[in-house]
């Protein structure tokens, strides 16, 4: 992954704070944010903070990982449905690979997601951890 400071910086609101988009016409809320609505096609959306708690809809334990991610392997990846119904795909952490189940409660936590070598930028982002 080629990383630059500006590239990481401009995604900070959505990647650090879990900001999504809300369509100004059909009111659908979605993640990641987009300037137009992917559902009704309306050309204006606004940024909103998404609920941080949700449940696991689907998951996978990824053993064959892309270059540069070996130290994180195996990566547990979850399809999470937040409390407002918005779905987010992100890694699940702080849990054993065989302890994930459908409907499991999780909440968003800020974690390191990528290091660009020994001297490059460290990228942070939202992952999900078990919640009560």
């Amino acid at each position: 992954m080629k990383i630059s400071p500006a590239r990481v910086w401009r995604e900070k609101d959505s990647r650090y704070r879990l900001e999504g988009s809300k369509c100004k016409k059909c009111s659908r809320v979605f993640y990641p944010p987009k300037p137009s609505c992917p559902y009704c096609g309306y050309s204006d959306t606004e940024r909103i903070n998404l609920p941080r708690r949700g449940r696991v809809v689907s998951w996978t334990v990824e053993y064959t990982v892309p270059e540069g991610y070996r130290e994180y392997a195996p990566i547990i990846v979850g399809l999470i449905e937040l409390e407002n119904g918005t779905r987010v795909i992100a890694p699940i952490v702080d849990v054993e690979v065989d302890k994930i189940y459908e409907g499991m409660y999780v909440e968003a936590v800020l974690r390191k997601i990528f290091e660009d070598g020994d001297e490059g930028i460290i990228v942070y982002g939202i992952k999900f951890a078990p919640s009560t």
């Binding site: 994180y72 997601i113 990528f114």
Partner: peptide, 14 residues
Amino acid sequence: EYIYGISFAALNAL
């Protein structure tokens, strides 16, 4: 997706 180390196989696995 990719920036989290999520592979193409992982997405299909979901």
